[in-house]
Design a binder for these strands. Structure first.
Lengths: 121, 121
DNA sequence: CCGGTCGTACGAAGGTTCTCGTACCATGGG
DNA sequence: CCCATGGTACGAGAACCTTCGTACGACCGG
């Protein structure tokens, strides 16, 4: 069934398996935080290749995997593309208000430090 | 001046130097998160030695240093003891609601998983 | 079927983190 | 003045994280 509908299925933690420490660790990386912010801003599912990131494809795959395995995003294949969506409802149910507060905090920090200050040399 | 008043002063980031990524990273460790929760519950300054932690003194020093350098706690010497206080106002001013939301999320997770589930073997 | 696009797997280098043990320093009480 | 207490410094080992390159697999469009 699941195999038949989704030949290239990806492993996700169930809602109950999501751990706060894992979510915080996932979001403590500037690149991953910027991915989540963009996902939240656009409010649509985005392909990995829709993001312009200062790293190679391999590294991009790695970061999206961390986000998926920590329960922050849901990923599904659509043709050759891999679409990413925030797991808003799961996170809201487990940690009410956390995602929005974090997004607000990230926006505040960007305003404070200047929009270019998230990358490292 | 500063030297005279506090011969054993400790380096802290200024409020403006506190970075969201650093705070999230500091709190993504279960041991450090439990320290912050206890600090928030008691609402008083606590010495490092007031915490019962499943690690050695050296490791305890390390974790408190991470919390201090990320801007989460303020540490001052009082005699031989080193007192720790949450930097509530600084964090609230930079990231409104974040600390309380995180503490609530941590409490919710503990309720969900059982009070013994924060240590690792 | 063939080529191009999108993404994965694997291995490796380099850096950081977590942990400990041992030796040490600062403070305050007898 | 000495010692007990509370904490630090340093070094080391293990584990983990981030990054990359190269080679490969899956799907779509012609």
């Amino acid at each position: 069934m699941t195999e038949r509908d989704a030949p290239r299925a990806l492993a996700h933690p169930e809602r109950e398996e999501i751990r706060l420490e894992g979510v915080l660790h996932a979001l403590s990386d500037p690149l991953r935080l910027s991915i989540v912010r963009e996902l939240a801003d656009r409010e649509v599912e985005l392909a990995c290749s829709d993001f312009v990131l200062p790293v190679t494809k391999s590294t991009t795959t790695h970061h999206f995997r961390v986000l998926r395995e920590s329960g922050v995003v849901r990923q599904i294949y659509r043709g050759t593309a891999k679409m990413n969506g925030l797991r808003r409802e799961d996170l809201q149910s487990l940690f009410p208000g956390l995602l929005d507060t974090l997004l607000t905090a990230a926006a505040a920090e960007e305003t404070r430090l200047g929009p270019q200050a998230q990358a490292r040399p």
